[in-house]
């Protein structure tokens, strides 16, 4: 094998650096998430609580509350980020975020409707309704994109998603404008929060996230080929219809699980894959892993910051992700050429 040309070599070094930095940031974020809170636990106590649990208060806080919340933040971040990367590759549109499939609107509609009709509230109650709503909306968009047996073209999927989101969003507004109680619940759920999520919620969504991530990894090579267009992709051996179906299933599982567990968290699915493309180029096999590592970093750090942002009350993680991620994103977009 001859020596790689300098450009390819520098790109390889850059990718290695990006991945290395990601692992470092992830370690810092996890440590911070276990330690910071309304009752701070020093890192050595965190370690003791994890390695050698005793009956102390620190142990119960770290193992009972902070550990499941940290793991859930990791899962939610990874799920949203990867779903966004898949969605942007599938629709070949840099503005496509998971919400464009109608997932957020579907979940929101299911949650407000359930609260308005039954009067029940609570995380567990929202979990399954949000998941069901997200799944129904995504299936509707996919059917709309492939109606009458035609292949789901990217523009058609995107527009179908926007149409379904708009319709569901209107119904949500109708409900919250007429039902005060549903509105009051909805405004907190819709901000996106990880507060009070324990092991039960984590275990309930983990299988969906794992299957979704595996599915996303399986379709990544085919998405690369399809980036050249459906015909060229087919000529390269990718099967457009199967790939689109697999990608949509992955996005539905990932976003449905994340939204069910934490409410609709914006920006992660849109911003992190764009950022990853700016860092390592358009190859899906790199965009996926880089997103998989950086999206959880963003969600974790946002969650930690939200706990200490304002004294006395937590700021919802969905708010902080955008406030922190937005300016970084703008700075990067301004500095370099983004592959769109």
């Amino acid at each position: 094998m001859t020596a790689a040309p300098p450009r390819a070599r520098s790109r390889r070094r850059r990718r290695a650096l990006v991945m290395l930095a990601a692992f470092g940031l992830l370690a810092v974020a996890v440590a911070a998430s276990l330690s910071v809170g309304s009752r701070p636990v020093p890192l050595d106590e965190v370690w003791r609580a994890l390695a050698d649990p005793d009956g102390s208060v620190a142990t119960s806080i770290v193992r009972g509350q902070r550990l499941p919340r940290t793991l859930l933040a990791l899962e939610v971040g990874a799920a949203l980020g990867v779903a966004g990367a898949v969605m942007q590759a599938l629709t070949r549109n840099p503005l496509a975020d998971p919400g464009i499939l109608g997932v957020n609107a579907g979940a929101s509609l299911a949650v407000v409707a359930a609260v308005a009709l039954s009067g029940f509230v609570g995380i567990w109650f929202y979990l399954w309704f949000a998941f069901a709503g997200a799944a129904i909306a995504a299936v509707a968009v996919y059917l709309l994109g492939t109606v009458a047996g035609a292949f789901a073209t990217p523009a058609r999927l995107a527009l179908g998603g926007v149409a379904v989101s708009a319709a569901a969003g209107s119904l949500v507004q109708t409900v919250i404008l007429t039902d005060q109680r549903a509105f009051n619940e909805f405004r907190f759920w819709a901000a996106g929060s990880l507060e009070g999520r324990r092991w039960g919620i984590l275990l309930a969504v983990t299988p969906f996230v794992v299957v979704g991530l595996l599915l996303a990894a399986a379709v990544a090579p085919a998405l690369n080929a399809l980036a050249l267009g459906a015909d060229a992709g087919a000529a390269l051996g990718a099967r457009p219809r199967l790939t689109a179906g697999g990608a949509m299933a992955a996005v539905t599982l990932l976003c449905g699980a994340a939204t069910a567990a934490a409410g609709p968290i914006g920006f992660v699915g849109l911003g992190v894959p764009l950022l990853a493309r700016a860092l390592v180029g358009p190859d899906q096999r790199w965009v996926g892993p880089v997103t998989l590592l950086y999206a959880p970093v963003l969600v974790l750090l946002a969650d930690v910051a939200g706990r200490r942002f304002v004294p006395g009350a937590e700021v919802q993680v969905g708010i902080v992700t955008a406030v922190v991620g937005g300016p970084v994103f703008v700075a990067i977009v301004r500095r370099r050429r983004v592959a769109t």
Partner: peptide, 9 residues
Amino acid sequence: LVGVGVGAV
């Protein structure tokens, strides 16, 4: 892209 970032914030 800048609009998306500012809009998110």
